[in-house]
């Protein structure tokens, strides 16, 4: 399959600190790929580079074979913590991208998305009047309203409670089943990564490189039973071992 996104030897230095180095992998079209890795290993750096908000200091990232040099309309971004503008109501937030681009919004599509995420009727609410989960759903609608081909999500549900988080995971899968938007998903939760993804990529400690790349061949939509299967259990333990292995080598080298 042809790669939607190609990350080629991506590297990013902040001063004399290598945040990311020699990171290479592909994201196939219409798939969900999760990225997990120890804190501070460069996940956000990588995602922001994919979105064109950051430039790399070495290597490149291509979208459909074309190098990404700045923000692209084909790429949507969902931030950690919903990042709604507090002075606009929900609909004002969802229409914000259209205002900036001077583009006419597709109101039917937006209404459909609002319905899909269960926000119909909340259009006039201010962000502070919405729960954290609702805010994040709003930000997903905002990102999807432009019909991006790629959706980048940086720990979007990290701040939510476990229940809401599971609900949001199901929602992301449903949306994906409907739109087949290519999704790159960063998370600290291995379970969340497995539940959502077709592939889970494990990054090393800083500077981030690909340590392991696991395909997740589970039927969709995924259910509690799938998640309780032997296969998932094994995979979860392998990823945990990867991450734990890194932290123990690090503490060992630190102790020496």
């Amino acid at each position: 399959m042809v790669a939607k996104l190609a990350i080629r030897d991506a590297g990013k230095r902040y001063g004399d600190l290598d945040a990311l180095k020699g990171c290479t992998f592909d994201v196939a079209d219409k798939t969900i790929v999760s990225i997990v890795g120890p804190s501070g290993c460069g996940k956000t750096t990588l995602l922001w580079s994919m979105s064109g908000l950051h430039s790399l200091t070495s290597g490149e990232i291509d979208l459909d074979g074309q190098r990404i040099t700045g923000p692209r309309p084909e790429i949507g971004l969902v931030f950690q913590e919903a990042n709604l503008l507090p002075w606009r109501n929900l609909m004002g937030n969802i229409l914000f991208p259209f205002e900036v681009k001077g583009q006419k919004p597709d109101m039917d599509w937006i209404a459909h998305l609002m319905e899909r995420v269960g926000l119909t009727g909340f259009e006039k609410r201010m962000p502070r009047e919405l729960s954290g989960g609702m805010q994040q759903r709003g930000s997903i609608v905002r990102a999807l309203s432009l019909r991006p081909q790629v959706l980048l999500m940086d720990e979007p549900f990290g701040a939510l409670d476990a229940f809401t988080r599971e609900e949001m995971n199901r929602l992301v899968e449903e949306i994906w089943l409907e739109t087949k938007t290519t999704i790159v998903f960063i998370t600290h939760s291995i379970e969340e990564a497995i539940f959502l993804s077709d592939r889970v990529i494990v990054l090393t400690t800083r500077p981030g490189r690909v340590l392991a790349d696991y395909p997740v061949n589970l039927p969709r939509p995924r259910s509690l039973e799938t998640m309780a299967s032997r296969e998932v259990f094994d995979l979860m333990n392998r990823i945990k071992a990867d991450i734990y292995g890194m932290s123990s080598t690090r503490s060992r080298t630190a102790a020496e």
Partner: peptide, 27 residues
């Protein structure tokens, strides 16, 4: 920075950045 990044990701111009992000935030 997250709000500025948001506007930038939609290709906001400097002027839009001012009127749609900085000014309301400062209001």
């Amino acid at each position: 920075s997250a709000k500025i990044a948001l506007a930038r990701s939609y290709g906001a111009t400097t002027l839009q950045m001012f009127w749609k992000i900085r000014a309301p935030m400062a209001l």
